[in-house]
Design a protein around this nucleic acid. Structure first.
Length: 305
RNA sequence: GGAUGGGUGGCCGAGCGGUUAAUGGCAACAGGCUGUAAACCUGUCGCUCCUUGGAGCUACGGAGGUUCGAAUCCUCCCCCAUCCA
């Protein structure tokens, strides 16, 4: 299979589409927000008519108020990939959520999924005394406590949750290894445009999203009955559009902050993919001259090896 | 013309004689990430040099002054805001 990563706006979808068209592939989304229905404009979801009749998987699969996690993603993505392979086609995983890609390829550790009741109790404890969760983790699993910064409450919470649920240190479970995907070879490609050019393009794209009706989309989602506190509304673009709707930001500022957060996100994605083992960087946008040829060459030699 | 409040590092904003290269926040840059990851978190952040630790230089609108010592006090000037003419 082929995986295409890189920062938002680098043209991952276009490249994946071109590879799919040429190598008889099907696309598996690896973007944590495109899985949500109704969140279209701000997630740069490729419209149906632009998908060139190539099957796309894991897009629009859950409602905005449904819980979705990396574990769930890995499970569904593996099913999709198995199906594509069974059809004799090439699975092409595309998206900017590096964590999901890792969960899919390398797997997660074997452990319990989240337990909301337990989390509520832990959160209450942390509210009473800030830092108490990290201290508790230090007692249950000193190694995990050392690795997770005390301010990173969400990660401290998850570690504690696991320790408490299985009555063993998370670190021990980690050592047992991850349930990596087996039976597939994967070529990992990453698009890496020039930073300034990328930022410029992101600013433009973001402004266009507002012109294209991002705010109206937010109003529509709200009109469907979804609360403004729903997870996907926390994402850049939607967050600001929502703030505009609530009168907390002018339209101009909403766009400004959405652009800024998008740029920061792109940087974080680059940081993540730089760490991805074996990833081959293609230095440019999907549309940069020579990039597609380089990708085709990589895929061809990968498939023939 | 007069009155009052202000001018601080890329921005916002504390400080109001020494321990202040100057709290915070933002931005920027770099990094981390094992089930909500477009989330969450961390580091660096005036310049130059040397090895940790330091050394030097420049800096709080401008120019002077007081003082052992000033972003902090005084004088004059410039600019901004509001109010009175």
């Amino acid at each position: 299979m082929v995986a295409v990563g890189g920062p938002t706006g680098s043209g991952k979808s276009d490249l994946a589409l071109a590879i799919a068209a040429e190598f008889n592939g099907e696309i598996v989304n690896c973007d944590s927000l495109q899985v949500y229905r109704h969140f279209d404009i701000g997630t740069a979801k490729l419209p149906l008519e632009e998908r060139r009749a190539i099957p796309h998987h894991l897009i629009d699969i859950i409602n905005p108020d449904e819980l979705f996690t990396a574990g769930e993603y890995a499970k569904l993505a593996r099913e999709a990939i198995a199906g594509i392979s069974a059809r004799g086609r090439l699975p092409i995983v595309v998206g900017g959520t590096g964590f999901y890609l890792r969960a899919l390829l390398d797997g997660l550790f074997e452990g319990p999924s989240r337990d909301q009741a337990l989390r509520d109790r832990l959160a209450a404890r942390e509210r009473r005394r800030a830092g108490s969760l990290h201290k508790l983790l230090g007692r249950l699993d000193s190694e995990a406590a050392r690795k997770i910064h005390k301010n990173d409450v969400p990660k401290v919470t998850r570690a504690l949750e696991v320790c408490l649920l299985v009555r063993r240190p998370v670190t021990q479970l980690f050592r047992a290894g991850r349930d990596a995907l087996r039976g597939y070879r994967t070529l990992k490609l990453g698009l890496l445009p020039d930073r300034d050019a990328l930022y410029e393009r992101l600013d433009l794209r973001c402004a266009r999203m507002f012109e294209a009706g991002l705010i109206e989309e937010v109003l529509h989602i709200l009109s469907l009955g979804y609360a403004p506190t729903v997870k996907p509304f926390e994402s850049h673009g939607y967050r600001q559009a929502l703030q505009f709707v609530n009168g907390e930001l002018s339209r101009r500022d909403a766009i400004f902050y959405a652009q800024r957060n998008t740029r920061q996100y792109a940087k974080r994605q680059i940081t993540w993919f730089r760490r991805e083992a074996g990833l081959v960087w293609l230095k440019g946008f999907a549309g940069t001259p020579g990039i597609y040829e380089a990708a085709r060459f990589r895929v061809t030699s990968f498939l023939n090896s």
